[in-house]
């Protein structure tokens, strides 16, 4: 009797609409941030027509975001190639012909590790760079200043970065692949006592001309994702230095996650 009354009064006291309010609020928040993002992408697409603004700036961004990222991409893939070759030979103990090391290094490099590792490294380097730069420009009102001088800030700041990333990331991945395979090759010859011909034979064994297309499609989508997310976060930075920090972290985390999601997505869509 007493217990029931206790429960009753507890329920009465409790605001029953609260859980619904929380769920509803979360959904609305999600929708509005999705809406905000789609508006950003819409603005981005519309700004593409403003060639005179972004045209001259794109090369500079290609240099900054692309060419200057070559060392990190190459460093990464060089070691990846070595490790791949060693681990392949370790896995294939005795039973499997050693030239399969060539097949594994080449295939893994082109299909997976080249694009994904480069993508992850660049989401750190490029994504963070963009988010921090645009975030600082936002909080110090430089973006507002651009607008007051009749520049479309999306065309001036975002489009060159997005284009540069989308063009340069696949190219970086190609160089990464070449260096990764080459370092795997050299490792095979010097550490694993394989002949050059064996490695080449293995490399060609399972090669399909679609592999490179797949690799390029994948890395292009990575480049697009990294730069769009970096720009979006930077553009919507709030608050001061702390806000810039938050935007940068978000850009990197989201880009890394999206790269892995896209990786699975392309595998499902293109490799089935």
């Amino acid at each position: 009797m007493l217990a029931r009354r206790g429960v009753r009064s507890y329920l009465d006291r409790m605001n029953l609409s609260l859980p619904f309010a929380i769920v509803g609020g979360a959904i609305l928040g999600l929708l509005s941030s999705f809406g905000q993002f789609s508006r950003f992408v819409g603005d981005l697409i519309r700004a593409l027509t403003d060639v005179r603004t972004w045209g001259p700036l794109t090369v500079g961004q290609m240099r900054r975001l692309g060419v200057d990222s070559l060392p990190i991409a190459l460093f990464l893939s060089c070691f990846t190639g070595i490790v791949l070759a060693l681990q392949a030979s370790y896995t294939f103990t005795g039973a499997i012909p050693l030239y399969f090391v060539g097949a594994l290094v080449t295939k893994t490099m082109i299909l997976e590790l080249g694009p994904v590792l480069t993508g992850l490294a660049l989401s750190g380097r490029v994504g963070a760079n963009i988010a921090a730069e645009l975030g600082t420009m936002r909080v110090s009102e430089q973006i507002d200043a651009l607008e007051t001088m009749a520049y479309n800030p999306i065309a001036y700041l975002v489009v060159p970065r997005v284009l540069a990333g989308t063009i340069m990331v696949p190219l970086l991945v190609i160089f990464s692949n070449v260096l990764g395979i080459a370092s795997g090759w050299i490792t095979s010859m010097n550490v694993l006592d394989m002949t050059s011909a064996q490695f080449v034979r293995g490399s060609r064994l399972f090669y399909d001309s679609f592999d490179i297309v797949y690799c390029i499609i994948k890395s292009t989508s990575f480049g697009l994702t990294i730069t769009v997310l970096g720009c979006y976060q930077g553009f919507n930075t709030r608050g001061g230095a702390e806000g810039v920090g938050i935007a940068t972290t978000r850009a990197v985390v989201l880009a890394s996650m999206m790269i892995l999601v896209l990786d699975a997505f392309w595998a499902l869509v293109l490799l089935q």
Binding site: V59, M62, R63, L70, M168, P170, I174, F175, V178, I212
Partner: peptide, 15 residues
Amino acid sequence: VGLVVIAGILTALAG
């Protein structure tokens, strides 16, 4: 940039 882009495309084709 031009050098890197052209080298990249050629590398992909050659590869």
